[in-house]
């Protein structure tokens, strides 16, 4: 067994183990840290495949950016740092059967298939080639990804921001359509009270 295989299996076990821990942990901070090991392990995989740029991006974006953001989010939104997540397992039997079938199917397919493999090119920097491709053959997906991120960002802000319902005559259409609970008035009050708290703090 060469060094490559040893490193691969070591990190494969790390990735699967921490992913399992992440899913099953009831503590959200533990989950976040387990996710960090999963993402970091993936970065090692990319490095093993000589995809240096992707490995660095994986570290910077996922581990450095998204994960830290998740941790900040957890810290700022929960009361205690170690609050238990309320989870409940439903449909245990059908889910288990379905997962088992899919698992067996996928494993058997992966084992039996003769995958088309690109040759491993070591010793070259992938950066130049990647940059060139992004500006030539893959220019369109590159630009489209930009639009996608713009829309996702605006959408996220839209969903997360507080609603300020105008007091103008337009809002006379108050009660929601065929829905008895009128969340407009109920959601309004906690909003205004929390806004008041904030201004009080400052």
């Amino acid at each position: 067994m060469d060094l490559f295989a040893v490193v691969f299996y070591l990190f494969a076990i790390l990735i699967i183990g921490s992913a399992t821990l992440m899913v099953f942990s009831k503590n959200i901070v533990h989950s976040a840290f387990a996710l960090m090991f999963t993402l970091g392990g993936l970065a090692v995989f990319y490095a093993l495949l000589y995809a240096g740029f992707v490995a660095v991006t994986q570290l910077l974006v996922y581990v450095g950016g998204i994960l830290v953001l998740i941790l900040f989010g957890v810290m700022l939104t929960t009361q205690g740092y170690f609050e238990k997540v309320k989870t409940r397992t439903v449909n245990l039997v059908p889910a288990t059967i379905f997962t088992a079938i899919v698992g067996v199917l996928l494993i058997s397919v992966f084992v039996s298939t003769d995958w088309t493999l690109a040759p491993l090119r070591d010793g070259e920097s992938t950066m130049t080639a990647l940059g060139e491709l992004l500006m030539t053959d893959f220019m369109l997906p590159f630009q489209v990804a930009g639009v996608l991120l713009l829309l996702a960002m605006i959408g996220a802000v839209l969903m997360a921001s507080r609603t300020r319902t105008p007091k103008s005559p337009g809002s006379s259409y108050g009660s929601p359509v065929s829905s008895p609970d009128s969340p407009d008035s109920s959601s309004q009050s906690p909003d205004s009270s929390s806004a008041g708290e904030e201004s009080h703090k400052t």
């Binding site: 829309l151 996702a152 959408g155 969903m159």
Partner: peptide, 16 residues
């Protein structure tokens, strides 16, 4: 899909 998710919840103060 991503834009549709946001649009479906556009009147987000309504529970439905």
């Amino acid at each position: 899909s991503i834009s549709s998710y946001v649009l479906a919840g556009f009147t987000k103060s309504l529970r439905k």
